[in-house]
Design a protein around this nucleic acid. Sequence first.
DNA 1: ACTGAAGGCTGCCCGC
DNA 2: GCGGGCAGCCTTCAGT
Lengths: 96, 96, 96, 96
Amino acid sequence: MDNNVGAVAGERLKSYIERIERLTEEKRAIAEDIKEIYVEAKSNGFDTKTIRRLVKERAMDADDLAEQEAILDLYKRALGQLADTPLGESALRRAG
Amino acid sequence: MDNNVGAVAGERLKSYIERIERLTEEKRAIAEDIKEIYVEAKSNGFDTKTIRRLVKERAMDADDLAEQEAILDLYKRALGQLADTPLGESALRRAG
Amino acid sequence: MDNNVGAVAGERLKSYIERIERLTEEKRAIAEDIKEIYVEAKSNGFDTKTIRRLVKERAMDADDLAEQEAILDLYKRALGQLADTPLGESALRRAG
Amino acid sequence: MDNNVGAVAGERLKSYIERIERLTEEKRAIAEDIKEIYVEAKSNGFDTKTIRRLVKERAMDADDLAEQEAILDLYKRALGQLADTPLGESALRRAG
DNA sequence: ACTGAAGGCTGCCCGC
DNA sequence: GCGGGCAGCCTTCAGT
C-alpha cells in the first residue's frame, strides 16, 4: 500500500473541514446581519413579528409561483409530445 | 365488468386511510409522552441533552458504535498528525 | 452531603431512560405498522403516493378546522368580555 | 401631522424586507456550497457523518466540550453502578 | 446503492 | 430564565 495515502487523505480531510468552517462562519455572519436589520427595524418602531411574517409569505408566494411554473412546464412538455400525433394536434389547437 | 368494483375499492381506500390515521395519532401521542418524560427529567435537575445522547448510544449496536468511534479516531489522527503512521494504517484496515 | 443522593439520582435516571426506550420502541412498532398498511394497499393496486397525499390533506384540513375553532373561540371570549358593557351588548345583538 | 409619514414608513419597510431577502438568499447559497463540499468529500470516500461530527466538536468551546463529557461520564457511572462512589461525587462536584 | 423529498427532532431566538 | 415558536439539520422513505 502506498505509504502516502494516509497523509494525502489527511490533507484532503483538513481542506474539507477548513472550507466548511469558513463557509459556516460566513453563514453565521450573514445571520447576524439579518438579526441586526430586525433590531434596527424594531428601534424604528416596526413590529418585527409582522416583518418576519411578510418575508415568509413572500418566500412562500415565490415558491408557489415556482411550482405553478413547474406544472405549466409539465403541461407544455406533455403537449409537445402529443404534437407528433393527430390527436395531439387537435388538442394543441383547442388549447391554443 | 362488476359495477361494484369502484365502490369496493372506495371502501378499501377509506379503511386504509382510517387505519393510517389512527396509528399516526397513536404515534403522535407516544411522541408527546416521550417529550413529557424529558420535561420531567429536566424539572428534576437532569441534563436532557445528555440523556438524549445516552439513549441514542444505547440504541446503537455495539459494533456500529465501535466502528463510528474508530473512524472518528482515524480522522482525528489524520488531522492531528498528517504524517502516516503504522497505527493509523491498522485503524484504516479496521474501519475498511 | 447525603450519600444516597447519587444512588437515588441514578435510579431516577435509569427509570427515565427505560421509559423513553420503551416508548420509543412502541413508536417504532407503530411506524412499522403504518408502513405495512401502505405495502398492503400497494399490493392491492392502490397508488401509495396518492394515499399519502390524501392522508396529509385530511390532516391539514383538520388543522385548519382547529385553527378556525380557535379563532371563533377567541371572538367568543372577546364578546364575552364585552357583554359586561352597554357597547358590548349592542355588539352581541348585532353578532346575533 | 406630516402626510408623508406613511409613505416614508412604507419605503423603510420595503427596504428592510429587501435587505433581509437578499441576505437570506446569500445564506441559502452558502448552505448550498457547504452541502456540495460534503458531496465532494463523500465522492472521495470520506464518511460525511464523521466529518460533521468533527466540525461540530471543533466549533464547540473546549471547556463546554469537557463539561459535556464530564456529565456524560457521570450519568454513565450512575447507570453502571447505582451505588454512590467517591469518584462519582467528585465528578458531580466538577459538573456542578 | 444513491438520490431527492418528507417528516421528525434539535437548537435558537424571541417575548414574557 | 423559561417556554413557545420557528428555522435548520438529520434521518427515513420511495423511486431509480
